[in-house]
Write a protein that binds this DNA or RNA. Structure first.
Lengths: 142, 142
DNA sequence: ACGAGCCTACGACGTTTGTAGTAGATCTGA
DNA sequence: TCAGATCTACTACAAACGTCGTAGGCTCGT
C-alpha cells in the first residue's frame, strides 16, 4: 500500500529518518534553514503523518512528544519510484532511456552499476570477469 | 521552467499527445474508460492546462475548439524525472540502485541498455567515449 | 511557589486538485 | 426551419496541502 506522501511531508520525513526519533522542535531544526516552516507548520504535518501512519509517538520527554518513523525511507522512496514508473508504462526502460538521452545517466554510470550488480550476484564467489570497477564521479548537467 | 502537471493533468495530456490535436470530446473518449471523468471535468482540466501553457486552441471545428499540446511529452516526463531525482539527491545512482534492489531493473535490462548506448554513441561517429551531450533527433511516434 | 518559556491541541484560511452541474450559444439533420 | 444534440463558459464545492496563530497546559530554574 505504501503511504502516499506529499512533497512537504517527504521533506519532513527526511528529517525524521535522519534523527531516527525526535521531537517536533528537533525535526524543525533539522530542516535546511532555507525552507524551514514555522514550528506549528511542522507540528501540523507531523500530526498528518501520524494519521497517515508514517510516524508514531513513542514516548514523552518533558512535555514534548517524541516521534519516530513507521515507514522506512526506502519504502517511501519506492512509492515515488513506482508512481513515476507507472507514468512510464510500468517498465523502467523508458525511464532509463530518457535519463541517458538527457545525459543524466552516462555509460560509465551504467557500467559501474552493472559491475556492482554482477559482483553482488556472484555473491562472494570468485568471478570478477565484468570487473571494470571504476570510481567515476558524476558531473552535473548545465 | 517545465510546467508542473498534476496526475490528472498528465493523464489528459497523454490523451492530447496521442491525438496530436483534438476536441474536448475526443480527448475524453481517448481516456481509458476505467478512469474516464465527466465531459466537463475534462473540459475544466483542459482549460487549466491552457492557462498553464501546456496546450492551446488552434482552431474551431463546428462549435468545438480544437486543442493541441504546447509542451512535449518528453519535456513533461523530464520534469517528473527531475523532481524524483531531486529527492534522490540529484543523482540517478541511488534511483538505479533501488530499482535493482527491488528487482525492477535486471542485469539484462542494464546490459541491453548499455549496448544500445554504445551503438548510439558510435553511430554518431563522434568519440565513442562518453555520451553526455548528444542532441539526437528521433522519429516521432504515431 | 512562580513566572518565563516551551509544547500541545485546535482552529483557520488561502490554494490547488479533482469533479461536475447549468445556462445559454451554436450546429445540424430532417 | 427548428428542435434536439453538442459545446462553451461559468460556477460550485469538497478534499488535500501548505501555512500559521492562539489558548492554555506543563516544566524548570530560581
Amino acid at each position: 500500500m505504501a503511504i502516499k506522501l506529499t512533497k512537504l511531508e517527504l521533506e519532513i520525513m527526511e528529517a525524521v529518518w535522519a534523527l531516527r526519533s525526535a521531537s517536533v522542535r528537533e525535526i524543525q531544526e533539522q530542516l535546511p534553514e532555507r525552507k524551514r516552516p514555522a514550528y506549528t507548520t511542522v507540528q501540523t504535518i507531523i500530526y498528518r503523518l501520524e494519521e497517515k501512519g508514517a510516524v508514531r509517538r513513542v514516548k514523552k520527554i518533558g512535555n514534548a512528544h517524541i516521534f519516530e518513523p513507521l515507514v522506512t525511507r526506502k519504502a517511501a522512496h519506492n512509492r515515488l519510484i513506482d508512481d513515476l514508473l507507472h507514468v512510464f508504462g510500468g517498465s523502467p526502460r523508458m525511464l532509463m532511456a530518457q535519463l541517458v538521452e538527457t545525459g543524466q545517466l552516462t555509460l560509465e554510470d551504467i557500467r559501474s552499476l552493472e559491475s556492482a550488480i554482477a559482483k553482488l550476484a556472484s555473491d562472494g564467489s570468485s568471478n570478477p570477469r565484468t570487473a571494470a570497477t571504476q570510481t567515476n564521479q558524476r558531473r552535473r548537467r548545465k
